[in-house]
């Protein structure tokens, strides 16, 4: 049973319809692809528009006499709400601009504070460096002072030794002089 082909009554019909559809489309194309059709269509559209305009005008006239609003009146009222929406949109964009400028100012301020902070930190580092250098200079000064004192002390000692040696020399000289005389 499963090998037997089932009959689909619409398969052929579908193929035929596709063919007919194409043929009808082609026929419609050919019927509309000529100047006469264009002229007729133009006349038809203009006549239709003319009668529609007349109908609208009369409708407006009757509505005015009966003092009832027309679709046009409702449309005019709706236009006002659209205008309001447009104004709100413009306001929204202005708020965006304000938000953007505030955030850019904030960013600028943050940037400026960061710069100030950097300068302060740099100055702090410089001061620390300078303090270290001053301390080192102070130490060097102390060392130099100590060295100076030591040198001075050494000089004094040399002077003292010199002074000690001086009378002895004189004595020796005298002795030498005395010795010459004795010889």
């Amino acid at each position: 049973m499963s090998n037997e082909k089932n009959f689909d009554p619409f398969f052929g019909f579908n193929q035929l319809s596709e063919m007919w559809d194409k043929q009808i489309t082609g026929l419609l194309y050919n019927l509309t692809d000529n100047k006469e059709f264009v002229r007729t269509a133009s006349f038809g559209i203009n006549s239709y528009s003319f009668y529609l305009e007349r109908l609208r005008k009369n409708q407006e006239l009757i509505a005015t006499l009966m003092n009832i609003p027309t679709k046009k009146d409702v449309a005019n009222a709706a236009k006002q709400s659209i205008q309001t929406e447009e104004k709100i949109d413009i306001l929204e964009e202005e708020i965006w601009k304000l938000q953007d400028s505030v955030s850019s100012i904030t960013k600028e301020n943050v940037g400026m504070f960061e710069e100030i902070l950097n300068i302060v930190m740099q100055m702090k580092n410089e001061f620390q460096k300078m303090a270290q250098e001053v301390a080192e200079a102070q130490k060097m000064n102390d060392d130099l002072q100590e060295l100076r004192k030591e040198i001075e002390r050494g000089l004094i000692e040399i002077e003292q030794e010199k002074q000690k040696k001086e009378p002895k020399k004189k004595q020796d000289k005298d002795l030498v002089l005395t010795g010459i005389n004795t010889i």
């Binding site: 194309y29 100047k35 059709f37 002229r39 559209i45 305009e53």
Partner: peptide
């Protein structure tokens, strides 16, 4: 669109202005 219809639109023979205005 059929060629002649397009031609009509292009040379203004077939205008939809009045039609659009009448409808709004």
């Amino acid at each position: 669109f059929p060629d002649k219809l397009l031609e009509g639109l292009q040379n203004g023979q077939l205008s939809l202005d009045r039609f659009a205005d009448a409808h709004g």
